[in-house]
């Protein structure tokens, strides 16, 4: 929980990940022989010691989060902005934000009060291009603080709900990173049958960018960890998962048929809560890109169910993060995953 909070309260907006990548690099250094940030900005590491005679498993999760970017500075310190990643316009009015410029500036995305709506415009739909950030400063005062192109963070501190459920912006995909870090912790004293490589990639929300440039030459299997849709009353029941249902194991052409089956068997044998998700084509995750790197990489996709994806109030059950961590650890530490 602590680690998840720390991860979720970090910035790392798609395209502006440097600072967050550096803090992840530091976190990995206690587990890894070699940690570096590659040319694209992704964090790549070898867990403990690398042995040329062993097969290699890659654990991958994207480190970026969706956000906004300043596109214009208007009179009285109002800002126009654009989305970085998939944002539902309807979730933005009355949001609190930080503009991450030379200084970090608090602001709100305004919304017209109900008093000022005439009957006809009552259903007026507000598009993102018509919304504005109110910084409370004058245009003149803003000049030395921020500029066009600065990223904007949707503000929503990590908070605990009932039981093991938590809510925050950026749980997509800080939940996935937390699961991998947890798994590494479980594996730190184990005898390992495989080399373990870690990649925390950038730019996933902008089109799976970072995953395209990971060095996968020696990788025999990639386990991609991301989030999937949690069940809510307004979403269709198929393809969405109740929070607390464990590790969600995906099946379909994007994923290796045989190895995925072994992962499911491992979950059953070890009594790890899990469910199966089916994706008939593109999973929309980095697995889609990684599968066709090099001479082709076998992929497994493990997901954590998450409600309200790409909003400031993303919600998960931390028990599911633990289930994914445990399943990763059980799969990679030995057994016959790669026969």
């Amino acid at each position: 929980m602590e680690i998840l909070k720390k991860l979720a309260d970090n910035s790392g907006i798609s395209g502006y990940e440097n600072e967050f990548a550096k803090s992840l690099q530091k976190m990995l250094e206690s587990y890894c022989s070699q940690v570096e940030i590659n040319k694209t900005g992704s964090v790549v590491a070898n867990f403990r010691n690398y042995d040329d005679n062993k097969k290699t498993i890659l654990l991958e999760a994207h480190l970026d989060r969706i956000g906004l970017v300043v596109s214009e500075i208007l009179e009285n310190g109002f800002l126009k902005f654009k989305a970085l990643g998939g944002v539902d316009d309807r979730t933005l009015p009355a949001s609190e934000i930080y503009v991450l410029g030379k200084e970090s500036i608090f602001g709100v995305i305004g919304a017209l009060p109900p008093h000022l709506k005439s009957g006809s415009s009552d259903d007026g739909f507000v598009k993102i291009q018509d919304m504005m950030i109110d910084t409370g400063f004058s245009k003149e005062e803003l000049k030395d603080k921020i500029s066009v192109g600065d990223p904007v963070l949707l503000k929503c501190e990590f908070c605990e709900l009932l039981g093991s459920r938590v809510s925050s912006a950026a749980l997509d995909n800080r939940a996935g990173i937390a699961a991998i870090l947890c798994a590494l912790d479980m594996l730190k004293t184990e005898d390992l049958k495989y080399n373990i490589k870690i990649a925390f990639t950038v730019g996933e929300e902008l089109g799976l960018l970072g995953a395209r440039t990971i060095d996968c030459e020696d990788v025999d299997l990639a386990i991609v960890v991301d989030v999937t849709h949690g069940k809510t009353p307004d979403a269709k029941p198929e393809g969405t998962f109740v929070l607390g249902s464990g590790a969600i194991i995906c099946r379909g052409p994007n994923l290796d048929f045989g190895i995925t089956k072994k992962v499911i068997e491992t979950a059953e044998k070890q009594g790890i809560l899990h469910d199966i998700e089916v994706s008939a084509g593109n999973t929309g995750t980095n697995a889609w890109v990684i599968q066709t790197l090099e001479q082709g990489i076998r992929c497994v996709l493990l997901s954590i169910p998450l409600r309200y994806m790409h909003t400031a109030v993303e919600t998960i059950d931390t028990d599911d993060v633990k289930s994914v961590a445990k399943l990763i650890a059980e799969c990679v530490k030995g057994g016959d995953l790669l026969a």
């Binding site: 998939g86 944002v87 539902d88 309807r90 979730t91 908070c159 605990e160 709900l161 009932l162 809510s167 849709h229 809510t232 307004d234 979403a235 269709k236 969405t240 929309g284 409600r307 309200y308 994806m309 790409h310 909003t311 109030v313 919600t315």
Partner: peptide, 14 residues
């Protein structure tokens, strides 16, 4: 005294 959230299904599902 407890926190709750109000939202809508993910943009991907709309």
């Amino acid at each position: 005294g407890l926190k709750g959230v109000i939202s809508t299904k993910a943009v991907h599902l709309t």
